[in-house]
Amino acid sequence: NMTTNERRVIVPADPTLWTQEHVRQWLEWAIKEYSLMEIDTSFFQNMDGKELCKMNKEDFLRATTLYNTEVLLSHLSYLRES
């Protein structure tokens, strides 16, 4: 059983600085953390943090459901504000 610390993704605090690998790690973490289903992860495959942060609700909806979109966008905006 993993502790919270072991599951925590170590990525730069500012999502606009993320590499493609960071985006992948964040997505994998969010899927596990929030038990998200039905995400087309290939949609995010060649995307870095700058591109991710430019995405709006409609962009996310092409890859996943409305619920997942709201979870991911709210977590992303939380990270950008902190």
Rank of each mutant, 00 (worst) to 15 (best):
M55W: 11
S74D: 13
N5F: 09
F44P: 01
F43W: 12
W18K: 00
D14S: 06
Y34H: 09
E6G: 07
L76N: 01
G49T: 00
W18S: 00
M2K: 05
I10C: 05
M37K: 12
Y34N: 15
V23S: 03
V11H: 11
V9N: 15
A30W: 02
T64D: 02
Y67D: 11
Q20I: 03
M47G: 01
R8M: 09
S74T: 10
E51Y: 02
L73F: 09
N46K: 13
T3Y: 06
S35K: 14
L27D: 03
R8I: 03
R24H: 07
I31R: 14
F44L: 06
D59F: 08
D14C: 07
Q45K: 11
V9C: 13
F60S: 01
I31K: 10
S42W: 05
T64G: 08
L76R: 02
D48N: 06
W18T: 00
L66S: 13
R62A: 07
E33V: 03
A63G: 13
P15A: 07
E70Y: 05
N46H: 15
M37C: 05
K57G: 03
W29D: 15
K54S: 12
N68T: 08
N1R: 09
L52Y: 00
T16P: 05
K54M: 13
I31S: 13
L17G: 14
I10Q: 13
W26L: 02
G49I: 03
H22R: 05
N46P: 06
C53G: 08
M2N: 07
V9L: 11
P12S: 14
V11E: 13
E70D: 14
T19F: 01
N56L: 08
A63N: 15
N46A: 10
D14A: 06
H22Y: 04
W29E: 15
L27H: 03
A30L: 07
E21N: 09
F43C: 04
M47E: 00
H22L: 04
P12Y: 06
E6N: 11
T69P: 00
R62Q: 14
C53L: 15
I10S: 15
V23L: 07
E6P: 08
D59K: 10
L27E: 01
T64L: 05
V11P: 15
M2H: 15
T16S: 09
V9H: 14
I39F: 09
P12C: 07
E6C: 06
V11Q: 11
L72A: 03
L76E: 01
T41M: 12
Q25D: 06
K54F: 02
E51R: 09
V71N: 04
W29H: 11
M47P: 02
Q25E: 04
K57Y: 08
P15I: 11
I31V: 12
K50F: 10
D48K: 06
S74Y: 15
A30R: 06
P12V: 03
L76K: 01
T69G: 07
H22A: 05
F44R: 00
N1M: 11
T69L: 02
L36T: 03
I39A: 05
V11K: 15
N5D: 12
I10T: 14
L66G: 09
F43V: 08
W26P: 00
A63L: 13
I10D: 15
E28N: 04
V71K: 14
N68P: 02
F44Q: 00
R7P: 11
E21K: 05
I31N: 02
W29M: 15
D40M: 02
A13E: 15
C53Y: 04
D40V: 01
T16K: 10
V71G: 02
L17R: 11
T3Q: 08
D40G: 02
R8K: 15
E28F: 04
C53I: 11
R7S: 07
S74G: 13
S74A: 13
W18V: 00
P12H: 09
Q25F: 09
N46L: 07
D40Y: 02
E6F: 03
Q20N: 15
L27G: 05
S35A: 10
H75Y: 06
W26F: 06
D59H: 07
I39K: 00
T69W: 00
D14Y: 13
N46E: 10
E6S: 11
C53F: 13
D59P: 01
R8P: 11
Q20A: 08
P15F: 01
G49E: 01
A30S: 13
K32S: 12
V9A: 15
W26C: 02
K54H: 03
H22V: 07
E21G: 07
K57C: 06
W29T: 15
K50M: 09
E28A: 12
N1W: 02
T64C: 03
Y34V: 00
R62D: 04
R8V: 05
S42P: 09
A63C: 10
K54Q: 10
L27F: 14
P15Q: 02
F44I: 05
E33W: 04
V23F: 02
T16D: 10
L36R: 00
L72M: 09
Q20P: 03
E51H: 14
D40K: 05
Q20K: 15
N56D: 11
N5R: 11
T16I: 11
I31W: 03
Y34D: 03
E70Q: 10
Y67K: 11
F60R: 00
N56Y: 02
M47L: 12
W18F: 02
T3L: 10
E33F: 01
T4E: 08
F43A: 10
T19Y: 00
Q25S: 05
E21L: 09
T65V: 00
D14K: 02
N5V: 06
E21D: 09
T3R: 07
L73Y: 05
M37L: 12
E28L: 12
T69K: 01
S74H: 10
E70G: 07
F44N: 01
V23T: 06
I39Q: 01
L61G: 06
Y78V: 15
T3K: 15
L73K: 06
P12N: 11
S42Y: 05
E70S: 09
S74L: 05
Q25C: 13
L73W: 13
N56V: 10
D40W: 01
N1K: 04
L76Y: 01
K57P: 07
N5C: 13
M37W: 08
D59R: 04
E58K: 07
L27Q: 00
E21Q: 14
A13F: 10
V23C: 01
V71I: 15
Q45D: 05
L52P: 02
E33P: 00
F60A: 01
L76Q: 01
E21T: 08
S42N: 15
T4S: 14
W29L: 08
L27M: 10
S74E: 15
N68R: 02
W29A: 14
L27R: 01
H22N: 12
A30H: 07
G49H: 02
K57H: 03
A13C: 11
M55L: 13
S35I: 02
H22C: 03
L79F: 02
Q45W: 14
E70R: 04
Q25L: 09
E33H: 06
K54A: 09
A30F: 05
T4I: 13
F60L: 08
V23G: 00
E28V: 11
E28G: 07
E58G: 13
L73R: 08
T4A: 14
L72G: 00
Y67G: 13
T64P: 02
Q45T: 10
K50P: 13
K50I: 09
E38G: 08
K50R: 09
R62L: 12
F43H: 07
A13L: 12
I10W: 06
E51Q: 13
I31T: 11
G49Q: 00
V9G: 15
R7F: 07
Q20Y: 09
L36N: 02
E38I: 04
E70L: 03
K32M: 06
K32F: 04
T19S: 09
R7Q: 09
M37V: 14
T41W: 10
G49L: 02
V9Q: 15
N1G: 06
R24P: 01
E6M: 07
